[in-house]
Design a protein around this nucleic acid. Structure first.
Lengths: 188, 188
DNA sequence: GCGCCCATGTAACTAGTTACATGATTCA
DNA sequence: TGAATCATGTAACTAGTTACATGGGCGC
């Protein structure tokens, strides 16, 4: 089975909220789903172009005062149909590569302090993301879109995943650092 | 900053246990770190070849009775040095893309039942991995390598991450399914 | 004048996946 | 006889990253 272009679906999804430019989409992604999704311009622009060719989106160049002109993309019916098909298809199962665990697995090749440091860093990152999630939560709650009022709070459910996940990570870090410290004491 | 070839380091790490063929490495990965790392032959073989050219590993063709001949790769001092440098370098921070959350985020575009189904599937997968982790745990504990006896139990620490993570996922799934069911009831 | 934000894009590259091809042996 | 395991590899491809290039407006 072929690999699917998830970026394409992320873009179509964003455009199903409202017409936007590539730049807008990136900004929104960075401020709403950044803790589980990222895109970069070098991928966004070519994919938008490709989707335009396939008539999944249409482009409209808009000029506004004081700003450079921007390309507003709108999702077409064909795009909506494709997006809905993807939404209904099963989630692709793929292994999430965790570099921290790869390093830890080979920890025997280095000294314990290095590994304690790595896990400590990981804990810091997890805490930082947890803090960021709180900010995103405020952003979502204040930007509640009228049209979605009667729908389930999907963005908050996603956010909740982040909370569960990164809380678990901090707990694991604490436990792991503890074990490694004891191992270090044994060594001496 | 350039992207680093993590596959290369996964292979070097495996070869730092003992000399192995590409086939062996794949098998070991699938039986020990598969819940957070995967590799496929189409990537392993070319990377081994490239590393041989760079003198990070050496190849030795071995013939055994009843089996096809295999290419045993050994890590060189240069390879060890590079691997150690990587082990000491900070873990690359990159966003883990979670397709389940991408779909859930755009849940408003489809019906609640679809989303309940997706989360239910996710819960099943998480539980399956949790079961798999128990098996891997047995495998690790029975295959304890003598040489690593006095080292911290790194493989078990990795496994523990999996337990924390997937336990958190199942909890999130339960909570999420509950919320969605209530939203559905409200709808009717 | 400098740096930041707005805004779009391409080129070169690396990483990773899938499908295909080959061929021996073992076990039911 | 057919499936599974052992074993290696390539070709074609898709996805994604990084660096580079451009240029206007705004605020300090």
């Amino acid at each position: 089975m072929a690999q699917i272009n998830t970026t394409q679906y992320a873009l179509l999804g964003m455009l199903s909220f409202q017409p936007m430019s590539g730049y807008d989409i990136k900004k929104i992604i960075d401020h709403s789903i950044s803790f589980f999704w990222s895109e970069n311009y070098g991928h966004i622009y070519p994919v938008l172009k490709k989707m335009e060719e396939q008539e999944l989106v249409t482009k409209q160049t808009v000029h506004t005062e004081g700003n450079p002109s921007k390309n507003l993309y709108s999702i077409t019916d064909k795009g909506k149909a494709l997006f809905t098909r993807w939404l209904n298809a099963p989630v692709q199962k793929k292994i999430i590569r965790l570099e921290i665990l790869l390093k830890l697995f080979f920890g025997f090749m280095t000294d314990i302090d290095n590994m304690i440091g790595k896990v400590t860093e990981e804990r810091k990152s997890a805490q930082a993301i947890l803090d960021e999630l709180a900010e995103i939560e405020n952003h979502i709650k204040s930007n509640q879109q009228e049209a979605l009022k009667d729908k389930p709070p999907y963005p908050l459910l996603c956010l909740n995943y982040g909370k569960f996940f990164y809380r678990a990570v901090t707990q694991w870090c604490d436990e792991t650092i503890d074990i490694l410290r004891k191992e270090k004491a044994k060594e001496e």
